[in-house]
């Protein structure tokens, strides 16, 4: 298969991400897909640091760094101002972490999507507050160690399903993507760019530092999240039209869990239980997609 990844680069070298950072890889692909005419909003997250200190910036697009919980609201204001200035071409893109999206920024995001603000919201999901040192978020998966879910207090709640929450808003477009599937990711970003209204892309982004994995495993682990059905690739249009983009090959979730230090405390029974949870979620997704012969 021929790769459809554009050559153009909007990320300069010299960013300060950790080795193997999925969020840096995700940014690079997303910018390639979006091209020049964008304005990016970055609420507090690892990328507030990765982009570089004043007066430097590793991004070759205009960036407004903003308060943690304002990804949806600041973008709404930028779009309004662009319209007033007669610029109907520039795409406003919010780039936020899972904490900024699932937790503290959820109200502003929900408000923006309810108003169907014309912008793209991209959440790079590393499943915890990484900037502040690996604290749990509502995106942290069941079973994970973080610095606020240590020892036997490992997280016993499910990961919030952000895509379904936004689908319930009848959002114009919502999709999942993954750094290990760059063509799929780029196609989704391009597709979103050609739409109007609120669009949401949820990108699975490995954090080697926070997940306690070697940096060279970053892509492999991200790929396994899809192959095991832990993070299915799919898209939803107008809150109703589901398309599943990847049919899993039946890998067991424990293969994925066993590679990561953040899950090292889990027993075989825990892993069996998680396997059941993942299967349950997958069946639910198939039902929503109108596919009843799921594996």
């Amino acid at each position: 298969m021929e790769l459809s990844v554009p050559d153009r680069e909007f990320m300069y070298s010299g960013h300060v991400a950790c080795p193997g950072c999925g969020a840096a890889i995700a940014m690079r692909f997303v910018l390639k897909a979006l091209g020049e005419k964008i304005i990016m909003v970055i609420p507090a997250c690892c990328w507030s640091i990765i982009a570089g200190p004043y007066p430097m910036s590793t991004l070759r697009v205009p960036v407004l760094h903003t308060a943690f919980e304002t990804g949806g609201s600041v973008a709404s204001g930028i779009k309004a101002a662009l319209e007033v200035r007669g610029d109907h071409e520039t795409t406003v893109v919010t780039w936020a972490g899972d904490g900024g999206t699932f937790d503290i920024g959820f109200q502003a995001l929900s408000g923006a999507v309810e108003r169907n603000e014309d912008f793209i919201y991209i959440c790079y999901d590393n499943e915890a507050y990484m900037n502040t040192g690996i604290q749990r978020s509502s995106s942290t998966p069941y079973g994970a160690w973080t610095t606020t879910t240590p020892g036997q207090d490992w997280k016993k709640m499910r990961k919030k399903n952000i895509v379904e929450a936004l689908v319930a808003h009848r959002i114009r477009y919502a999709a999942t993507a993954n750094i290990a599937f760059p063509e799929d990711l780029i196609n989704k970003v391009k597709k979103a760019k050609n739409m109007k209204g609120s669009r949401f892309i949820h990108i699975f982004s490995t954090c080697p530092t926070g997940w306690r994995v070697p940096s060279e495993m970053s892509i492999k682990i991200a790929r396994m999240a899809v192959q095991t059905n832990i993070f299915p690739l799919y898209e939803v249009e107008n809150g109703v039209e589901y398309t599943i983009n990847y049919r899993p090959k039946g890998y067991l979730v424990k293969e994925y869990f066993k590679l990561q230090g953040r899950f090292s405390h889990l027993t075989e029974e825990d892993l069996d239980q998680i396997q059941e949870m993942v299967e349950e979620d997958w069946k639910l997704l198939l039902r929503k997609a109108g596919v009843f012969s799921g594996s």
């Binding site: 909003v41 407004l64 903003t66 204001g77 930028i78 319209e83 200035r85 502003a108």
Partner: peptide, 27 residues
């Protein structure tokens, strides 16, 4: 002739103006 954003909180009202003002308009 202005855009009026009916946001979901005062917090978002101010945040939206921060975005708009950074884009060069009177708010």
């Amino acid at each position: 002739d202005a855009k009026f954003l009916r946001v979901e909180s005062e917090h978002s009202a101010m945040a939206a103006l921060i975005g708009a003002s950074s884009t060069g308009v009177r708010t």
